[in-house]
Simulated assay, not measured.
Amino acid sequence: MKDANALALSVIREALPDGTRVAISMPDDWPAAKALVLCRRVGGPVTSVRHGLDRPMFTVSAFAASHAEASSLAHAAQSALYDAARRGHRGVSAFRSVSGPAWLTGAPAGSERYSFTAVVSVH
């Protein structure tokens, strides 16, 4: 079975501007002024271990120095997952938005945060 989190990170990384850090968790050495996208599996069932079908739910958060940049990164990440599903890229076969992208409070000082949650199918 494919590592759904690694797959999502790779799909998102390919779609973002050079220099954007993409990770599962907040890096200790991250300077708040730099672009960062976190993609973390927060649920979703493995619907068929035998056939390798997984339906992970991801929360994706984009951090950047401005609202506009954080929003742009979140929308680009969401579009990357949607486009991968539409094309069947790397075994991603479906995409369903659950929420967002939306501005959220709680970003580290000097940054803004936009997040979305989505379910994808991976086989």
Rank of each mutant, 00 (worst) to 15 (best):
L81G: 11
G88A: 07
S93K: 04
A84S: 11
A35C: 10
P45S: 03
S48W: 04
V22E: 06
V60R: 10
L104Y: 12
A23N: 11
L73W: 02
H89C: 11
L73M: 06
D28W: 09
A85K: 00
L36G: 07
G43D: 08
P56E: 04
L38W: 08
D54M: 00
M26P: 04
F63W: 09
P45N: 11
L36M: 07
V42L: 03
V42G: 03
D83K: 01
L73A: 05
A68N: 05
R50S: 13
M26W: 11
Q78K: 13
H75Q: 03
W103M: 09
A62N: 02
G19S: 01
G100N: 02
T20W: 03
D28V: 13
T59K: 09
T47P: 00
G100V: 02
W103C: 03
R55H: 13
P31Q: 13
K34W: 08
S61V: 02
T59V: 10
S99C: 03
H89W: 09
I24K: 13
R87W: 06
A85L: 00
D54V: 00
H75M: 02
P56C: 01
R55W: 11
A68I: 04
V92I: 15
A32E: 10
F95C: 01
M57T: 14
G88P: 03
D29Q: 12
A76S: 14
A80W: 04
A33F: 12
M57G: 08
R87A: 15
A107W: 08
G88N: 05
A33Q: 13
G44D: 11
H67C: 01
P45C: 00
G91A: 01
A70F: 04
F58R: 08
L36V: 11
S48F: 04
L104M: 12
V37S: 03
F95R: 00
A32S: 15
A102I: 11
R50K: 15
R40Q: 14
L104F: 07
A107V: 09
R55A: 10
A76D: 13
S66N: 07
A35S: 15
E69G: 04
L104T: 04
A102P: 01
H75D: 12
G43T: 05
R96E: 15
H89Q: 15
S93W: 03
S72T: 13
D54W: 03
T105A: 12
A80C: 11
T20A: 02
S48Y: 02
Q78P: 07
L73D: 10
A35P: 14
R41M: 10
S79P: 01
V60P: 08
C39T: 15
V49S: 10
A33H: 12
S48Q: 02
A85T: 01
A84N: 09
P108C: 04
A84V: 12
A85C: 05
S66R: 14
V42T: 12
R40T: 14
D54A: 00
R87C: 05
L73I: 07
P56M: 00
P56R: 02
V42D: 02
S61N: 09
G88K: 01
Q78R: 13
P27R: 02
C39H: 08
H67D: 15
R96N: 10
